[in-house]
Amino acid sequence: MSTPMVSMRGVDKRFGELHVLRSIDLDVAPQEVVVVIGPSGSGKSTLCRTINRLEPIDAGEIRVDGRPLPEEGAQLAQLRADVGMVFQSFNLFGHLSVLDNVMLAPLKVRKVAKATARAEGMALLERVGIADKADRFPAQLSGGQQQRAAIARSLAMDPKLMLFDEPTSALDPEMVSEVLEVMVGLARDGMTMVVVTHEMGFARRAADRVVFMDAGQIVEEAPPAEFFDATRSERARSFLSNVLAH
């Protein structure tokens, strides 16, 4: 078996009294799409954020592409450059145009030539369907457009792994699908993805594996068909019946 893209062993994390991650073991293979679901406060967002060390962990080990996560500093910055992250609240840089948002990291981190960065940036905006908004500022875009711009910004670094932390949770319902469409496309193109989401439809359609978390633990993991149609754990069954009831 090849080296996993992400490997978590015995990962533990507390926020003060709150034990948010309890000895998590998780491997993500290259090109695999892992969807993490679970109730609020189950630790799924925190799990996602530990993978590029936006949240440091208290115990255990995380490896990305075979390398243990370095301490905060230049090496960690280097690793983060190879790991894309898409946030719930988009977090586009408010003072920069959409195209400049996409070009910033290639210019400053990769030291790409400006003309190259611009051409690649435009190509990415084309790919996520907002090339006509290149010169707009984030506040002038709809939520769905902003999130697609944020995905393009991550893709501009040519990441080997993409983390999605509830990418559609802050969106109006009618904008959810345009973002999911882009993500399904990425999954098809073979991107390795860890996706924290409440979108069960996306999990069914694009996931290779569904991971169900509750109270800081991985309760169940299975391919989507098996997970949704032959749920093993009682906890996941009751979660799904609540989520899918409406």
Partner: peptide, 14 residues
């Protein structure tokens, strides 16, 4: 916003 800093760090900016 904190998110601005997180996004920048996540992109590999020092």
């Amino acid at each position: 916003a904190v998110g601005q800093v997180e996004a920048a760090r996540a992109l590999g900016l020092r």
